[in-house]
Amino acid sequence: MHAPHSQYAIEARNIVKRFDGEAAVDGIDLTIRKGSIFGILGPNGAGKTTTLRMLLGIIDPDEGERFLLGSPEPISMAHQVGYLPEERGLYQSMKAFDAIAFMGALRGLPLAEGRKRGRAMMEDHGLGDAADKQIRQLSKGMAQTVQLLGTLVHDPDLIILDEPFSGLDALNQGKLERLIRAQADKGVTIIFSTHVIAHAERLCEEIAIIADGKISFKGKVSTARDRLRPQVHLETRNLDGPWRTAIPAECKPLGHNWHFTLPESGVEPLLHALVEGGAGIESLSIERPGLHDAFVQIAGDAAARKMEADAGNNNGDETA
């Protein structure tokens, strides 16, 4: 067994998990720095949840090793971890603030302190009037917020959220993003899985892309995007002239509009050729590829289409 490194909240080396002889996770290596927001991207069935459960010690890998907060026995660190599983579940007859306290008690927080914090947290999130309501009386968005607050009530050093945005409408998704950023500002390590690329692009410094139980990319979001060259959107008054040599030969105009990949030489030589060659520039913009484009290039069209379908199937319709 290798010794863990102190700068990492999570380390996994060649972890494998099989179900009925089929590899759900197939040789994953993963390191996640303390204090970072890390996103695990992939369609449903890619192995995200199985990976998180192994990292947490809920299930053991068939092969490989993993360390959570430096421990080779992740379950022993449960009191320092906040975990929101993909399957949501709260006792329906329990009052909201009691549900938060109960979840904290499972992680070692005294029940009385949990109740005090639970009320305060609901007040801070604009849900003070719902603190004494039973879970069954809350909207879906409110109930999900209560479960999330219960994940945080014991002040964990590491927060792991499995598809936390699933089922939330745009308003509650925005609230959750702000809450994640606030925890990160306190130095907490946050790991979340998602099939909605936009959340990872807005929140994460680093990501891992998982497909078919394997990691096809791990690194900075900017590194993933830099795999693709920027795109040029150009509108000209003229359609011909010496400047045309600056545009890829295969590029054809749509009206007076041109769309092509920025040449390796960069924007300044392009701009010089357009001006000196008499293109008559009406507008020019350089668009850096987004994480979605990078995901398609890394994981393929089929995985990207499945991600979009998963996101569409899990749109929330609740407001809170």
Rank of each mutant, 00 (worst) to 15 (best):
P4L: 02
S6I: 09
Q7M: 11
Q7D: 14
Y8T: 03
E11H: 06
A12P: 00
N14A: 15
E22V: 15
D26V: 03
L30C: 09
T31S: 14
R33K: 13
K34W: 10
I37G: 00
P43W: 04
N44Y: 03
N44P: 01
G45F: 05
T49V: 07
L52R: 02
L52D: 02
P61K: 05
E63M: 11
L68G: 03
G70C: 02
P72F: 04
P72N: 09
S76H: 14
A78H: 15
H79E: 13
G82M: 02
L84N: 01
R88W: 06
Q92I: 10
A96V: 05
A101P: 01
R107F: 04
R107W: 03
P110E: 02
G118V: 01
R119A: 10
H125Y: 15
L127H: 05
A131R: 06
K133D: 06
S139V: 05
M142L: 09
V146F: 07
V146S: 08
T151C: 12
L152P: 04
D157K: 15
L161W: 08
L161S: 05
D162H: 02
F165S: 07
L171G: 07
L171A: 12
L171T: 11
N172L: 03
Q173M: 11
K175H: 12
L176F: 10
L176Y: 05
L179S: 06
I180V: 11
I180M: 03
Q183F: 09
S193F: 01
V196A: 12
H199D: 05
E201P: 09
E205P: 04
I209W: 00
I210Y: 06
K214Y: 09
V221G: 03
S222V: 10
T223M: 10
T223W: 08
D226R: 15
D226A: 15
R227C: 03
P230E: 04
V232A: 06
V232R: 09
T236A: 07
T236I: 05
W243G: 07
I247Q: 08
I247G: 06
P248R: 06
E250D: 14
E250F: 11
C251S: 15
L254Y: 13
H256T: 12
N257V: 13
W258D: 06
T261K: 09
L262K: 08
S265C: 07
S265G: 07
V267W: 12
P269K: 08
L271T: 13
A273P: 09
L274I: 04
V275A: 11
E276D: 15
A279F: 00
A279G: 00
E282S: 14
S285L: 05
I286A: 00
I286N: 01
R288K: 14
R288D: 12
R288C: 08
G290F: 08
L291V: 00
L291A: 04
L291G: 01
H292T: 13
A294V: 01
V296D: 08
G300S: 01
A302S: 15
A303F: 09
R305E: 15
R305G: 10
A309N: 11
D310R: 10
D310S: 09
G312K: 13
N313G: 14
N313P: 03
N314W: 13
N315Y: 15
D317K: 14
A320S: 14
A320H: 15
